[in-house]
Design a protein around this nucleic acid. Structure first.
Lengths: 187, 187
DNA sequence: GATCGAAGTCAACACGCGTGGACTTATACT
DNA sequence: AGTATAAGTCCACGCGTGTTGACTTCGATC
């Protein structure tokens, strides 16, 4: 066959990559189809060809898979370390979560998607570790993780931005552990 | 004198109020001068007359004063309750902080302003309560407060949105207390 | 070597935006 | 009554946006 042996999907991947970077840096509205195309060195119409829409490009750029490890049978401290490590790596390897975080602030659809990621992907894993009230505990874990990412990556607070992975483990790890496993917490 | 005894500043206040509501709901970019003027029932040019700019309107709509209570001499639990109560009231009485939170996600200037609010207004008050490392502990307190507000008000997570003030006290209060006063925390 | 289809470019459209300036209205003072 | 002055309206400009359709290029197949 070899219908189109050229690097057909190469520019498509380049557009997606540039779009992801720009969405992660500027949010949805401030990114223009033209700016993405310019970064790739391609005509703006290419974006429509491959993604039909600016929204289509965003949807693909914001596709996030948390792939959390199995938390069952782990002690509180191990759970906390596993969560910190995973999210630390997640924000480093690809900015999809940051894309979603930035866009969620001004777009109800993006907010809904981010909430779905937390509830549907992190929810089950966290529920196996929660002593009770899994919904509340998952929401609190999410609030601390997103809040820290916000202060560190969006606001750029020096004290938070300067922390190493081990620092984050030591500072916020215990909070996550208590949110999930402290039986005395809550009303 | 009475240079203009008419309700001169009334429409100005109405524009500011409508702008604040729309900025709190939609962020900076999605709000248009026209939409604000339409909500007030006034010509768009009135916005320029009173605020010179869309940016000028935003700047005034985002002016935030935390007015935190004095935390010196309080125990950990009292500190936590005082913080939760103050921020709970703050988000209810006026959406300026929400305006700043939403806009900070996509605007570096807004992010800088929100960071300044945390550092300059909350920082000193929190520093009096912190056992050590005031910068790190203030950043962590801010991350939890903003993160919870984000999950509750922006994402609208049911488990977080349904919490009463006392629920929030019971769930996140202890976290704030530990961030400030736990001497064993951190690396 | 002719041809077909995909990859990519070009110019333009329609729209909504922020903003500016000329114009109108109406109130308070002389 | 007349007038100055502030409040408010109208209209339109210029720009950047997302998006579209027709055109061009070019490599692989027959």
């Amino acid at each position: 066959m070899t219908p189109r042996p050229r690097d057909a999907t190469a520019t498509r991947a380049a557009i997606l990559d540039a779009g992801r970077r720009q969405f992660a840096r500027d949010g949805f509205e401030r990114v223009t189809v033209r700016s993405v195309a310019a970064e790739v060195g391609v005509d703006p119409a290419m974006v429509m060809r491959y993604f039909t829409n600016k929204a289509g490009l965003f949807a693909e750029a914001a596709a996030t898979e948390l792939v959390l490890p199995d938390l069952a049978g782990l002690g509180p401290d191990e759970i906390a370390d596993a969560l910190v490590d995973r999210f630390f790596a997640l924000f480093e390897e690809s900015p999809t979560l940051l894309v979603l975080l930035r866009a969620a602030a001004t777009s109800p659809e993006a907010a809904e998607r981010l909430l779905a990621v937390i509830l549907d992907q992190a929810g089950p894993a966290l529920a196996t570790a929660a002593v009770d009230r899994p919904a509340e505990r998952a929401a609190l874990v999410g609030s601390q993780i997103l809040g820290f990412a916000f202060v560190r990556l969006v606001l750029g607070a020096p004290a938070a931005a300067a922390m190493s992975r081990d620092d984050v483990r030591a500072w916020v790890g215990p909070t996550l552990a208590r949110y999930l496993t402290d039986p005395d917490l809550g009303p």
